[in-house]
Simulated scan of single mutants.
Amino acid sequence: MSVHTEAVRVEQLTRVYGTDQQPVTALAGVDAVFVRGTFTAVMGPSGSGKSTLLQTAAGLDRPTSGRVRLGDTELSGLSETQLTKLRRDRIGFVFQAFNLLGALTVEENIVLPSRLAGVRVDRGWLAEVVQRVGLDDRLTHRPSELSGGQQQRVAIARALVTRPEVIFCDEPTGALDTATAADVLTLLRMLVDTHGQTVVMVTHDPVAASYADRVLVLADGRLVLDLPQPGATRIAEVLATLGRSRVRS
């Protein structure tokens, strides 16, 4: 596979927490490639390492060993300052908590990270992003005046405004009701299909994962399955089987 088609590659990724006496292995030699213009869901039982995979792949946490490449950039050789700049300029983040500032308007929340970084906001691109996420008529509203789904759309717009190479989402629909979650997932799907965005999403929800092109399943820090879109029913069956095997072990 050409490096030009790869948004992110992780190789033999290991992350160990704790002390030498009591080590906890969150990742145990994970290999994965996330292709540009695709939507990948990362799943697994609680404690399987899925959030740790997202954090190390996104440069939020350094692996104990192994390699992470964002496009043609190897992350391990970067200083903390360089990592901060890379995350700001090339990566978007969407979390379960919307992380919006209540005193700011929708527009001010969207451009805040750019303003803090001293980066000039491209007004034409901002207008396009706002239109894509359906917030044209909400720019002067405060977060308290928005529904949960609208607040998550603000968070997605904030992630998009820097033109990221990849958007990492950690349980982005975890705080939303079923209908609102479907609305947000449809938006993420549209960003991939229509605009060629790359999305990597950690989720525990088989229905949310069914919006992705591909599902990676982790168990005990290892990648155990890499499935082309299997559908929500099959995903639920796989997770149930993994859960039973963990109970038996």
Rank of each mutant, 00 (worst) to 15 (best):
V119K: 14
R120P: 12
V121T: 14
V121S: 13
V121M: 07
R123T: 02
A127C: 07
A127R: 15
A127T: 09
V129L: 02
V130I: 11
V133T: 04
G134D: 11
G134H: 15
D136E: 11
D136V: 02
D137N: 12
T140G: 14
T140N: 14
H141W: 05
R142F: 05
R142A: 10
P143T: 12
P143C: 09
S144K: 01
L146M: 03
S147I: 00
S147C: 07
Q150P: 01
Q152S: 06
R153M: 08
V154W: 04
V154D: 06
A155Q: 10
A155E: 11
A155V: 01
I156S: 05
I156W: 00
R158Y: 02
A159P: 01
V161E: 15
T162E: 11
R163G: 03
P164Q: 15
V166D: 10
I167E: 12
I167P: 00
C169W: 09
C169H: 06
D170R: 06
D170N: 04
D170C: 04
E171N: 07
E171D: 04
L176R: 07
L176C: 03
L176P: 01
D177P: 03
D177A: 05
D177W: 04
A182P: 01
D183P: 04
L187T: 10
R189D: 12
R189V: 05
R189C: 12
V192H: 14
V192C: 10
D193A: 12
D193M: 11
D193H: 15
T194F: 01
G196P: 03
T198G: 08
V199Y: 02
V200H: 06
T203D: 01
H204P: 00
V207D: 11
A208Q: 06
A208G: 04
S210I: 06
A212W: 09
D213A: 07
V215C: 10
L216Q: 08
L216D: 00
V217Q: 11
A219P: 00
G221A: 06
R222G: 01
L223V: 13
V224Y: 04
V224L: 04
L225F: 10
D226G: 09
D226H: 15
L227I: 07
L227M: 05
Q229N: 14
P230I: 13
P230G: 09
R234Y: 02
I235D: 08
A236H: 07
V238R: 15
L239H: 12
